[in-house]
Design a protein around this nucleic acid. Structure first.
Length: 307
RNA sequence: GGUGCCAUAGCUCAGUUGGUAGAGCAACGGACUGAAAAUCCGUGUGUCCCUAGUUCGAUUCUUGGUGGCACCA
């Protein structure tokens, strides 16, 4: 049986570096599970692998889409599963690395089949929301799917709108489609998590932001300023600079906010990790561990456990 | 050196007519199924500068300190 080695961890922990070394050792490609690095041009601000790193190991899902293209965890699931079927023909192990936990879970566990929402319906509901407000959305959802209405966070606009979209699109209650299937994959999944002491992680994040600025983050962001309304640009590292370009704050303030928001992002990721009991952790703050050997050891152990 | 004002959460500050205190920001915790670096929810973490007094009881009033700011020398 083939293996998917998932290398995860909070932003700034060192995933890129260790995934490269591991991939070189195993002579395998890397699938990136990152909802922002997938867009072209968001290079410095998302700490995407650079040209030199990309030349060392074949990467997938890096700089693949134009920033105005729609994408979703479900598409990522489909495309990755199809890609793995191919890659596993020539590789026993394929590495997947990234910080977008919804994407990782979509591949590892699967998500429900829900039809695509057509653009007109999406637009119509947006218009209702804009002209009549969230309460109208709530009331419609309450009628069409009282079950989900009872569970959902009634202040979360995105979730409410999406649930209503699905109800109207399918003619069925959204909750009826949420079966939470445990999809069986034709490959073994080994999850290795990289972590560091919090203070150290925060220091690394701060330092990395300073490096990004030094490497030209401000110019990169300025290039996207006209496209700031796009979802792909609603991203830490860019939205703070857009505020600076607007004249709402100083550059130093914006950079400080990028650091702060990156730290919050890292914490949110760790919250997600805590409930995933399948992750085998390696603490990079402990100098004594040989990280690469540790990763390979965890992989071997997981493989022999299954056999 | 003199006079006045100030000292409360990590920061900026409210407040308690005397019954040990609360906002914003920060920080921290959580949720998460086709926008997820998104979106949303929750939590006050405190020698109320120190000392002595008055009082059943002082962060609050009084005395004396300490530190900061302003003005006068």
């Amino acid at each position: 049986m083939k293996t998917l080695l998932v290398l995860l961890g909070p932003t700034g922990v060192g995933k890129t570096e260790w995934s490269l070394l591991t991939a070189e050792r195993l002579a395998c490609p890397i699938i990136s599970a990152d909802s922002r690095q997938i867009y072209k041009g968001l290079t410095i601000g998302t700490a995407a692998p650079n040209a030199e790193q990309l030349s060392r190991v074949r990467h997938y899902f890096i700089a693949k889409l134009s920033p105005d293209e729609y994408y979703s965890a479900s598409q990522f699931e489909d495309e990755t599963i199809a890609l793995l079927e191919n890659l596993h023909q020539s590789h026993d192990v394929v590495i997947m690395t990234g910080g977008s936990m919804l994407y990782i879970d979509a591949v590892c566990k699967g998500i429900d089949e829900i039809p695509n929402i057509d653009d007109k319906l999406r637009q119509d509901i947006q218009n209702i929301y804009k002209t009549e407000g969230l309460d109208t959305i709530r009331q419609q959802l309450k009628l069409l799917d009282p079950v989900f209405y009872g569970v959902v966070d009634l202040k979360n606009t995105k979730r409410l709108i999406h649930a209503l979209e699905v109800c109207l699109m399918t003619g069925k209650p959204y909750s009826a489609l949420r079966t939470n299937p445990k999809k069986e994959r034709p490959f073994r999944i080994v999850k290795v998590g990289l972590k560091r002491e919090r203070v150290e992680l925060y220091n690394r994040i701060d330092l990395r932001v300073d490096e990004m600025v030094h490497d030209g983050l401000i110019d990169e962001a300025r290039g996207f300023y006209p496209q700031r309304h796009l979802n792909s640009l609603n991203t830490v590292g860019y939205k703070e600079l857009f505020d600076y370009f607007d004249g709402n704050c100083t550059l130093d303030f914006a950079i400080g906010k990028i650091k702060q928001h990156s730290r919050i992002y890292a914490r949110k990721q760790m919250t997600w990790f805590r409930r995933d009991k399948e992750i085998n952790w390696i603490n990079l703050s402990e100098n004594s561990v040989d990280v690469l050997e540790e990763i390979l050891k965890l992989k071997e152990k997981a493989i022999s456990n299954v056999l």
